[in-house]
Amino acid sequence: MAIFNLTVNGNSKQVDVDPNTPMLWVLRDHLDLVGTKFGCGIAQCGACTIHMDGAAVRSCQLPVSAAEGVKITTIEGISEKGDHPVQKAWVEHDVPQCGYCQAGQIMSAVALLKDNPSPSDEDIDNAMNGNICRCGTYTRIKAAIKTASQNV
């Protein structure tokens, strides 16, 4: 066990955990931020996507020891009132079905639009390739990303 000082959603947090603990479980079990979801544990499904200094990463593969000194952002931290253009687009297109993967989808979409504000269909396909939606809301996700791209 060791003490780690983290910056999560702009707040300083301290946790005392095994250095190999993935950020996914630090967020969920120790910091009560359960918006980041467990899906596969091997970086195949994207449900656990968070931002490390603005870039999308799979938190199930990010040990807490590598998360010090960087800015971690989770779904709870991308906007104050759930009104990030991507979140608003998700509402407009009524995207979710079961909703479980959607936090990860949104985190990937926000990172994409930050780097590439006007993505092509192919850009969207590539950026979202790591996120599985079992209910099959892909066409709505893509439409929502296009709507959001006009408002970021």
């Binding site: 709870e76 009524d94 909703g99 959607q102 936090a103």
Partner: peptide
């Protein structure tokens, strides 16, 4: 609109695993 969407898109605890 789906009444749970505001919670889903902000990562509120909704699911059993949460």
């Amino acid at each position: 609109k789906n009444v749970d969407v505001p919670k889903i898109i902000t990562g509120k605890p909704l699911f059993g695993i949460d």
